Simulated assay, not measured.
Amino acid sequence: MSKAILSSFVEGAPPGELTDVIADIKALTISTPSAVKDLGPAFQKYNEEQFVTVKLPGSSQQVIISSHSSLGDGRYYDVESSSSFAFDHTTQKASAVQSHVVEGSQADLVKSTLKSISTYVKEHFPNAASGVYPIEDDSKIAIVIVSNKYSPNNFWNGRWRSLYIFDPSTSALEGSVKVDVHYYEDGNVRLLTNKPVAATVSSGTGAGIAKEIAAAERKYQEELNRGFTNLSEGAFKGLRRQLPVTRQKIEWDKVASYRLGQDIGGGSSRR
């Protein structure tokens, strides 16, 4: 099996299910033990794009893996804990924690935005993490939010991802919200959404940025709720009859005595 095909398996792994995908890849490539080791770039792309979270050694805090927090050579940093760390993209484990303090012209805006975003995230998301990073030679900042909800015992997992870029020179805030939910009991159903967001931050402060993000995400969540209601009342309901053609509920305790053609179908039975 080609490396490109195996990489596509990794990059398409649903939230919280990368370990299962790796196990399947090992089973498919049992004659090529080095196959998983060769997929390092695919694992890195997946972890960075999915905003995978990891706990630093000795800490209960979840920090985010993303291209915006990358220092190169497999190391990443976290503003809130003022630390950098090595990250193994295959095992999704962090190690070798060191001190790392954010400096530069956007340092104060990064810290104030992180404070406001952290408050918003704690109030509105379960199992969530957030990060704010200076990017593009310290000319802009990136705001990242990720919330994971895993319920494998009930055959579903989900992830909410937000990424915004704020330009202090224009007060423009642009980004997107992505929702990925996988339900796999007796089949596979997957919801994938990508909602673009564009706004102008009037105050240009961390609190102002958080306010615009909160408003945009609240609006999108309301859109999702309406969409699910419409699906439930419309398309999903249209997939099957609520009642048999007789318009009467079946009395299941008497089902053994029904004559299929006449009693259930409503027609005359032929002998």
Rank of each mutant, 00 (worst) to 15 (best):
M1H: 08
M1I: 09
S2L: 03
S7Y: 01
G12M: 08
E17S: 15
I22Y: 04
I25H: 08
A27S: 11
A27M: 03
T29P: 07
P33L: 09
L39Y: 05
A42D: 04
Q44T: 15
N47H: 12
V54T: 15
L56I: 15
G58K: 08
S60I: 02
I64H: 01
S66I: 10
S66G: 13
S66N: 09
H68Q: 15
G72T: 14
Y77S: 03
D78F: 00
V79Q: 12
S81V: 00
F85T: 11
F87R: 08
T90F: 07
T90N: 14
T91N: 14
Q92A: 15
K93N: 13
A94L: 10
S95D: 15
A96V: 09
V101P: 01
V102T: 13
E103R: 14
D108V: 14
K111D: 04
S112M: 02
S116T: 06
T119A: 15
Y120V: 05
H124F: 01
G131H: 02
I135Y: 09
E136W: 04
S139I: 00
A142Y: 06
V146Q: 05
S147C: 02
S147E: 00
N148Y: 00
Y150M: 13
F155N: 07
W156D: 04
G158M: 03
W160L: 06
R161N: 13
I165S: 10
S169L: 05
L173G: 08
E174I: 14
G175Q: 08
G175A: 12
V179D: 02
Y183M: 10
Y184P: 11
D186S: 13
V189P: 01
K195S: 08
K195M: 04
V197F: 02
V197D: 02
A198Q: 11
S203P: 10
A210N: 05
A210P: 12
K211H: 12
E212P: 13
E212Y: 07
A214V: 04
K219Q: 13
Q221N: 11
T229G: 11
S232K: 13
A235D: 02
K237I: 00
L239T: 07
V245F: 00
T246D: 01
Q248H: 14
E251V: 15
D253I: 13
R259H: 08
L260W: 14
Q262M: 04
